[in-house]
Design a protein around this nucleic acid. Structure first.
Ligand SMILES: [Mn+2]
Ligand SMILES: [Mn+2]
Ligand SMILES: [Zn+2]
Ligand SMILES: [Zn+2]
Lengths: 133, 133
DNA sequence: TTCTAAATTTGTAACGATTACAATTATGGT
DNA sequence: ACCATAATTGTAATCGTTACAAATTTAGAA
């Protein structure tokens, strides 16, 4: 996965900041918050500004290579995996799992004629790891 | 539906504020925000404080007669309908529709051994009304 | 009724995530 | 090198929410 090329082919000029931010997002796979991303990269890019992280993620979202998810309400998390999937957040360890969706059936009649642009599914509970310890 | 009794039977002492807030929530059915509730009731209860609205909704949630939903990341909305259902938000008119869930199939293997406490589903798009005008 | 303690409500200040904005820095073409 | 444009940065403002202490109300005992 060549990140610079990935950005280019999505109409994003690959600056150092953009490459590093996407690289972190893509490799970490832990649905980080802006603060997490900022703190992780502040070492590598000492001049990095939190505003840049916000701007960059917004740009990524607008160009369809990142999505945001809000599970807690208080702060947004980001995801470089664009394949449609659900999320499970464990209330104990805080980890957010990716869950594949096999099928979602809603009552058709109510949504007939509606245009659905986005489907968000998130579950909350306790994960296996936390339950068995 | 006797609201005072409904509160009582859920271990909530029915004060004037609590009754009015639940009454509004239950009758309006439009998933109001704290600000909406506050502004609506400020006329009836001139001394009402926004903090009371926050406190009261928190109490309702703790006692299981209200749920909160976050569709836009910026502000919480509240719902007195406790039956499990999904939400559809129209990006044009802003209205939030209640949608019945017929079935949700996730990949079982990934959630085996997990304890699911909450399931949130919200769709975003354009509603029929807005598309046909 | 009157007194008193606990519960509830209220107003203000603090908080934290996000956004606005203007200044600075980097980039790319001439 | 020079200039125009884009990107980054730092600071201040915004806004929903929470903390907290003071004021008010409630309910039970005396
Ligand atoms: Mn994910
Ligand atoms: Mn609803
Ligand atoms: Zn866990
Ligand atoms: Zn609409």
């Amino acid at each position: 996965m060549n990140i610079a090329h990935h950005l280019y082919s999505n109409n994003i000029k690959p600056s150092v900041q953009r490459i590093k931010i996407f690289e972190y997002l893509y490799n970490s796979k832990n649905h980080p918050t802006v603060d997490t991303i900022y703190c992780q990269l502040a070492g590598e890019i000492p001049t990095l500004s939190k505003t840049t992280v916000y701007n960059t993620l917004k740009l990524f979202i607008e160009n369809g290579i990142t999505s945001s998810l809000i599970i807690d309400g208080n702060e947004a998390r980001y995801d470089a995996i664009m394949k449609k999937h659900a999320h499970f957040k464990c209330n104990d360890c805080g980890y957010i799992y990716d869950i594949e969706i096999n099928d979602l059936k809603l009552k058709d009649s109510q949504l007939a004629g509606f245009e659905i642009g986005e489907t968000n599914i998130h579950l909350i509970g306790k994960c296996k790891k936390c339950l068995t310890k």
